[in-house]
Design a binder for these strands. Sequence first.
DNA 1: CCCGAATGAGACAGTGGTGTTTCATTCGGG
DNA 2: CCCGAATGAAACACCACTGTCTCATTCGGG
Lengths: 183, 183
Amino acid sequence: MTRLDRQHVLNAAASLLTRKATASMDEIARAAGISRATLHRHFAGRDALVRALEDLGIEQFERALDEARTEEGDAAEAVRRLIALSEPVAGILAFLFTENQLYENGCNEGWNRLDTRVQRLFTRGQEEGAFRLDLSAAWLTEALYGLIGTGAWAVHDGRVAAKDHTRMVSELLLGGARRRMER
Amino acid sequence: MTRLDRQHVLNAAASLLTRKATASMDEIARAAGISRATLHRHFAGRDALVRALEDLGIEQFERALDEARTEEGDAAEAVRRLIALSEPVAGILAFLFTENQLYENGCNEGWNRLDTRVQRLFTRGQEEGAFRLDLSAAWLTEALYGLIGTGAWAVHDGRVAAKDHTRMVSELLLGGARRRMER
DNA sequence: CCCGAATGAGACAGTGGTGTTTCATTCGGG
DNA sequence: CCCGAATGAAACACCACTGTCTCATTCGGG
């Protein structure tokens, strides 16, 4: 129950902060249907809440990484699976990225773990000849994050349809904008 | 002189806010080498300063759009030129995008003008058969902005070399990550 | 050199959010 | 039903930042 409450509050906070990254504790509390006092009883402060949210995002993205089985099969297909499975977390990730960008606090160590796994996927793809070698795996990793976030915002602002999010991101990341004759 | 001072202050503010989007008026003033009082004499308030910065970003990006001659020649090459010429503004653009994302204030009308021009470039490319049709011009436009910003951050955090910024962004946007046999 | 304009330094009140506390109320298991 | 735990509402001090003002100092053109 305490656990469920906590989860519920975190989900509400994630949903709100995804849309309005500067929401106050009071707004977050209202969005979760509780009072500011209770919110403070659950999370010591705004920092603690954001950090908890960060843990949630890391956990969910890591789960996506697991379920996508990024170590198996065609690397390009693995990237596609990863993006598809990440879609529900896209909003949170977008929020956390800008948050990390805004305050240059020592970002959660968990990101390194995820970065490593994503980067390994791209490196594997390069070694197997699926991905080009003239774009570093580090950059492809950044670009994956960036495009997921950009896609989430574009959907949120109604500039692309929600159902197209996954396809737009994965197609652009993998294939680029240029039209290809073969295929 | 007044003009030069203003420009100098704006440049300093852009440089700082690119790195720390939440910098206070005092920090901005120090970064520009002037006092907070003088900063307030130049710009009525933080809003006014950000708006002026927005105008600067729009102006510079529009100039890039002009110099790239996006209406002429091969569309893909035009995109490449545009990204190369935008590189000096990349940091400001990254800041302004998150700023616009954070506060959903009625964003400057000038953006529409730029959006239209960028989108027209992608549409032209699609009509000429250079760009794929299954990714909307609107999404390609968003992706261009997003990748420029992501690239700027990656450079700032030292994850990719500054000299690679333009190539990384344009190659990924145009060609994607997948390796191509033909060429 | 001189005078007006611009600047820097500091004081000041106002503001919005934060974190804490108190107290009355509600909830739920025993 | 009862009692302890959890909650909501309100009040409070606090903090950082903002925007404004004053005044002494500096700067630069005439």
